[in-house]
Write a protein that binds this DNA or RNA. Sequence first.
DNA 1: ATAACATATGAATAGATGTTCATATGAAAG
DNA 2: CTTTCATATGAACATCTATTCATATGTTAT
Lengths: 117, 117
Amino acid sequence: MSEIERCEFLCVHDEVVKKVLSQMPKDEALYDLAELFKVFGDTTRIRILYALFEAELCVCDTSQLLGLSQTAVSHQLRILKANRLVRARKEGKNVFYSLADSHVRQIIGQGMEHVEE
Amino acid sequence: MSEIERCEFLCVHDEVVKKVLSQMPKDEALYDLAELFKVFGDTTRIRILYALFEAELCVCDTSQLLGLSQTAVSHQLRILKANRLVRARKEGKNVFYSLADSHVRQIIGQGMEHVEE
DNA sequence: ATAACATATGAATAGATGTTCATATGAAAG
DNA sequence: CTTTCATATGAACATCTATTCATATGTTAT
């Protein structure tokens, strides 16, 4: 009898396991969810998002505001856009970015509440 | 005149910049926030958290439920606990973990909404 | 005490990720 | 059309992180 089987019969309450298994979202959804949070899980991106809380900003503005290189900001904005967290609006040579939807504020808001406790 | 200065005077609207700068949280808070989201940004940890949505589970249960090694689960639960996302309750040889507070559900819920759109 | 078991921990390795550097694209101005 | 500027992109490098393996801790039962 393997270690795994042993443990299963000792610890697991069948009903609980079945209940949990039946209510777990699909792996793909969980993967996507983790990918989304990964996007929030970087100081640079969080700072960019927070800056966009207050105003729409172009890449150049953002990089100066936050003391980052233009390239770094551009790379991160690309990731934010790919995950539909920001929107881009082109105006001449500039590209202005803004928050994409209300989820961004809500997710960050909840996170901040947790951190500040 | 450096590239940076050039850009600043061309793109930045002083009022906007001042407004954004004045409303940015402290770097420390933003760092902590990113650290928190980093915790959510891993498939294994998300799966563990979701499993705990439905029931309190011991390490062994969790590892079998999710098809992970005991060690991997233990390492991840340690991180979740350090970030106050789960609670531990010792009962004999077993340690039962459960969600720590309502923020966890809310943050994950918001994230799932965004992903499912 | 000793064996069996659940959990935790430390070190090592492999894979992922952010920044930088160099360069490309595309738009406005001269 | 050539220059200047804002932005984007690709490759390389350095750092971080999750898993595994080996082992330690602490609890229960014999």
